[in-house]
Each structure stands twice: as C-alpha cells, then as structure tokens.
C-alpha cells in the first residue's frame, strides 16, 4: 500500500538534514495529544482484551478460566461458521471492488458523455447511512414484492430468495456492500490513473500498441499502488464489517450470515463479556494474519515495478 510504504523512503532523507536544530523545530510534544488518546482508548483496551478473553467477566468482577472461551468458540458450529463467513465476505467484497473499481475508473477517465454526472452517481452511495442502505435493500430484495425480483420476473427469470434463504443471505449482503463501497475504489483508481504520465500512453501508441497491450503493460502495472490500496482498505473494512449485516439480517436466517463482528455484539448483548472479548481476539488474529503479510508482500512488489 502506497500510503504505508512511504516510511521506507524516510530513512534515505537522513543526509538532507541541515545544521538547524531539528529537535527544537520538530518537537516531540507534537505527538502528545494523539498519543495519549490513542494509547488510552485503543492500545490499552487491545492489550487488555488478551487478558479478559481468558476470563469469565461481568465488568465488575472477573474469574480466570484459561482458554475455555476459545474452546467454546471453536466447538460451537455457528461460531466456526461465523469465522468462515467473515473470510468469505471480506475476500468477495474486496475482490469485486478491485475489478469493478478499476473498470469503472478506466471507463470514466476516458472521453465519456456525462462523465462527471456518472462519477457522482457511483460515488453517492458512499455518503448514505449504511444502516439506511441496509433497510432499503432489505425491502428491495423481498422475494415476492421486492423491485429486484419483480424486475427479474418481468424478463421471465425467477429471482433467488436473497436474504430469506440461508444459502444466499450472506452473498446478498456482500453484493449490497459492493454497491455501497465501489465508489471509494473507483475514486482511488481515478487518482491512480491521473498519476500515470501521459507520455507512456503516447509512446505506446507510437509503438503501435493496441488497447489491450496498453492495458496489460502500462495501465495495469502503473495502477499497482492504487490496487494494493484498494485491496488492503477493503479487506480491513470487510473483515470487521458490522453495520450493514446487522441492519439487513442480524446474522440470520439462523446463523447463516453471522460474521465475527455480529457474534461479538450478540455475546456482548447477552452479557458474556469474556466470550465476546475472545471473539475480538479471534478477529484480531484473523485480521492480522491476513492483512499484515499481504501488506508486506504488496509493498515489496510495489518497489519492484
């Protein structure tokens, strides 16, 4: 991810220091306000979660029970299902946003009639309340009277049951998540395209490269920083996704569309704070195990280009 990889470049700047007093002009106390808020409300709870996930906990009082919470977590089929659902949801939405975002951006960066209108329309869902989007699509996806199946019927296609069918519920929510988030991916790709120097394209045309060759050898590699940004951001968002799933299905029918974030909330509501925190730790491990190595790999590849 381009955003993260800049750290490396910093190191090479050391020799550019002048004799000016660096510590005085860039004082450490500039870190203080952010550091205090971040340490107390983010780092501390994260560290505490490792301890409290090993307890039976009522917020006032705790009892150490070892790995019982985790044992329970992985013996309940619906909790395992929720973990798998989380991974599916994140990879499906992330992959789809990469492909659609790139295609839309390439299309909308060329000469197209009503370009700025189309850009605005695609970005607009990003602004709308996620819960509102969930409520709306719940109505649109009604199996009988919903406008989606009504339109499919018009063309003689029998639509799926969407949210009512355990087999398609999670997939339906994932589709709505793509609908809502593809605008961000498109904007990141548009920014990436704008950063490609025009000379490359001109040189390719002079060399007689076709559209596909140009895409394969110029656009795609030079868009790589944008691609890795989209992949990482949407994976992080997808793995912890809660609002949309809660608004549309509350994890149902049954546990068919439960993800880790909704399980954490359900256990919290039920007062199982230790178990809820264990869910948090599982999510932490899952996110870190997927995103951290991927980020390193993408950064390394980015340097190669």
């Amino acid at each position: 991810m381009a955003v993260i990889s800049t750290a490396r470049k910093n190191k090479n700047q050391r020799h550019t220091y002048s004799s000016l007093n660096v510590a005085k002009s860039y004082p450490s106390w500039f870190y203080a306000p952010a550091a205090i808020i971040y340490a107390v409300l983010f780092l501390l709870p994260t560290l505490l979660s490792f301890f409290f996930s090993l307890t039976r906990w009522s917020l006032f009082d705790w009892q150490f029970i070892g790995f019982d919470n985790f044992a329970q977590f992985f013996s309940e089929p619906f909790l395992i299902q929720g973990t798998l659902n989380t991974v599916f949801f994140a990879f499906f939405t992330s992959g789809t946003k990469v492909v659609l975002g790139m295609l839309l951006a390439i299309w909308l960066s060329g000469a197209v009639f009503a370009k700025s209108y189309l850009r605005a329309v695609i970005f607009f869902p990003v602004l709308v309340s996620t819960v509102g989007v969930g409520i709306t699509f719940k109505a649109l996806m009604q199996p009988e009277d919903g406008v989606i199946n009504a339109s499919l019927n018009f063309f003689g296609i029998e639509g799926p049951l969407w949210l009512a069918d355990p087999g398609t519920a999670l997939f339906s929510v994932a589709l709505v998540d793509v609908w809502r988030g593809v605008g961000i991916a498109t904007v990141i790709y548009l920014a990436g395209l704008a950063a490609i120097p025009q000379e490359y394209n001109e040189a390719a045309i002079v060399d007689g490269a076709g559209k596909l060759t140009k895409f394969r050898h110029i656009t795609l590699p030079l868009l790589f920083p944008a691609t890795s940004t989209v992949i990482i951001l949407s994976l992080i968002g997808g793995l912890r996704s809660f609002d949309l799933i809660w608004a549309m299905t509350r994890g149902g029918p049954g546990f068919a569309s439960d993800v880790l974030a909704s399980i954490i909330f359900k256990q919290y509501q039920a007062g199982f704070y230790g178990l809820s925190t264990a869910g948090n730790v599982v999510l932490f491990i899952l996110v870190t195990a997927i995103v951290y190595p991927l980020n390193r790999y993408l950064n390394k590849k980015e340097v190669d280009y």
């Binding site: 750290a7 409300l41 709870p45 994260t46 409290f52 925190t277 948090n280 932490f284």
Partner: peptide, 29 residues
C-alpha cells in the same frame, strides 16, 4: 524528524489501521 522511535511509531500507526478495536475492554476503560 527521523529518530530511533520512528519505526515503532510507524508500526503503531499500521496497527491502528489494521486492528479491530476490542469492544468490551474499551467500555471497561
């Protein structure tokens, strides 16, 4: 300003981007 803590600070920022907040411990704090 690059110091020996720069690496640590960058790591903490990356952690803040990636790690999902721990809900109940945050309520406790």
């Amino acid at each position: 300003r690059v110091t020996r803590f720069t690496g640590l600070i960058n790591a903490l920022i990356l952690a803040g981007l990636i790690i999902p907040p721990a809900v109940v411990p945050t309520i406790w704090v």
